[in-house]
Amino acid sequence: MAVKRAKKKSSAVKDDDLDTDKIGDVGKDNLQSEDSDSKLGEVGKKESSVVIVYKTYDADVEFKLKEIPSKNNEILIGPVRLTRFEKARITGARSLQLSLGAPILTKIPPEFTDTIMIAKYELEKKTLPISIRRILPNGLYQDIPIEWTI
C-alpha cells in the first residue's frame, strides 16, 4: 500500500510584512546593559562557592584470574556453541591474518576467493588453532579450543 504525502506550502515572509517597531527593537535586545552584567557576576560568585564532596571507597579486593580445569573436554562456562560475537571475532582475526599473507590451513573450494569466506570456511571445518577465553566477573575463566564446540 503506497502512502501519498502532500507537500507543505511554504509561506515566504516579505519585507513589507515586518513592523518597523520590531526592527527598531532588535538593536536594543542585542546589547547587554550594565544591569545584566552585574547579575552574571553574582551568579558566577554563587556557583564558585558550591563545593561537591564525593565519597571514595578503598577497594582491598584484588582481581585475580583463576582457570577452571575441564574434565573430558567439557565447556563449563557459557553455551556449548560459539556465540555470534565469538564467531565474528575469530572470523575477523583470521581474515586479517589471511590478508597479510598467512597460509590457508585447509583445502578450500575454488569459488572461495574472499578472505572472509575462507576464514568462515576454516572456522566451520574447525581447523583453526585458536581458543576462546571466557571470563566470569569473579575472575574464573576457561580456555576453550574450537574443537570442543559443536
Rank of each mutant, 00 (worst) to 15 (best):
Y54T: 01
I52S: 07
V50R: 15
K71E: 14
P103V: 03
A88N: 09
D29Q: 12
K46I: 02
E86I: 07
D114F: 13
P129Y: 09
V80S: 10
E34A: 14
G24N: 11
G78C: 07
D143V: 14
P129D: 14
L65P: 00
F63P: 00
I108E: 04
G101N: 04
L140K: 11
D58Q: 11
M117I: 10
I130M: 12
P109W: 15
I146N: 06
K7V: 09
D17V: 02
D17K: 08
Q142F: 09
P137H: 04
I23E: 08
S36W: 13
M117L: 14
T106I: 11
V50G: 00
S11E: 08
S33I: 00
E74A: 09
T149R: 07
R133L: 10
Q97R: 10
L140Q: 12
D143F: 13
G92F: 06
K28V: 12
D16W: 10
E124V: 01
K46G: 04
P109G: 08
E42W: 06
F85Y: 10
L82I: 05
T56W: 14
I75E: 02
R81S: 10
R134L: 14
L31C: 03
L105K: 11
K28Q: 07
P137G: 04
E147W: 04
I150D: 12
V50S: 06
G24E: 14
I52L: 12
